[in-house]
């Protein structure tokens, strides 16, 4: 028996919206640890890894590991029938071939249940090693989304260059080229600026840097890699899940784009770099 209740149903709705266009069918792995998924897009250049830990659910019961194969578009259709403030419960029998989604409104006077047929999906599971990345960038997820969207109107790929002081996004296309540089705003810098503006008697203006790019860079080695913007734009559908996005890059390795899901886990996207031949 698998049973998981999430009070903030909007989280599950948002998770599905962020992955349903990338992956068609996927196996959800339900274990005592939580509700997880790993799936690649049809071209096998990107991968999504989702983890919703059991401790983040309001109620969680998993007597035996269960794999639930679902069509994500159909799952999303069902979850769209839940209101944002509904509680969502997922239920499945160990040997059953359906999953039940139960929605309950905050007043508990409207209860709906939707049954969805499960499917057998033959997928490859990749072993992703725990790697120390050469560069880790943490920035506003809105800003990252804006950059990817803006650049995709100029070109098809983006080159991300991380140095200790900045992260630079570059693209080029038939109409021209574009460079966007976000400078690192360390905690130290922000505090300093705050003190200064307070002395100057300026109000709230200091938040320009702390609420603007808010770029944090952890660098072992400068890295420059090129990626297809189409996929990055798809990853950005997870923006509403978290204020910040974390990018991890290493030479000739897929980038990891991570959105934390408060108190529950994460959704991580991996994308293979474009390599010059």
């Amino acid at each position: 028996m698998f049973e998981a209740r999430i009070l903030q149903g909007s989280i599950l709705k948002k998770v599905l919206e962020s992955i349903k266009d990338l992956v068609t069918d996927a196996n959800f792995e339900c274990t005592a640890n939580g509700f997880a998924l790993q799936a690649m897009d049809s071209s096998h250049v990107s991968l999504v890894a989702l983890m919703l830990r059991s401790t983040g659910f309001d109620h969680y019961r998993c007597d035996r590991d269960v794999t639930m194969g679902m069509n994500l578009l159909n799952m999303s259709k069902m979850l769209k029938c839940a209101d944002n403030d509904d509680t969502i419960t997922m239920k499945a029998d160990d040997a059953g071939d359906v999953v039940t989604f139960m929605f309950e409104n905050p007043k508990a006077d409207k209860i709906s249940d939707f049954q969805m047929k499960l499917m057998d999906i033959d997928t490859e599971h990749l072993g992703i090693p725990d790697t120390e990345y050469e560069a880790t960038v943490k920035m506003s997820s809105n800003e990252f989304q804006r950059i990817c969207r803006d650049l995709s109107s100029i070109g098809d790929t983006v080159t991300i260059a991380v140095t200790k002081d900045s992260v630079k996004f570059t693209t080029s296309g038939d109409i021209g080229e574009a460079n966007i540089t976000c400078r690192r705003t360390s905690d130290g810098d922000m505090k300093e600026e705050k003190v200064k503006t307070e002395e100057d008697g300026e109000k709230v203006h200091n938040t320009k840097s702390s609420e603007g790019q808010n770029v944090d860079i952890d660098l072992q080695e400068p890295v420059t890699l090129t990626f297809a913007l189409r996929y990055l734009n798809s990853f950005c559908k997870a923006t509403s899940l978290c204020e910040n996005v974390r990018l991890q890059l290493s030479k000739e390795l897929p980038v990891v784009v991570q959105y934390l899901i408060e108190d529950m886990g994460y959704v991580r996207f991996y994308l293979a770099p474009k390599i010059e031949e």
């Binding site: 250049v45 991968l47 490859e124 992703i128 991996y270 293979a272 390599i275």
Partner: peptide, 14 residues
């Protein structure tokens, strides 16, 4: 020309 390898060339099967 830039090529994009599949993820299997970076990560092995689990």
């Amino acid at each position: 020309v830039a090529s994009q390898n599949r993820l299997e060339s970076f990560f092995g099967a689990a």
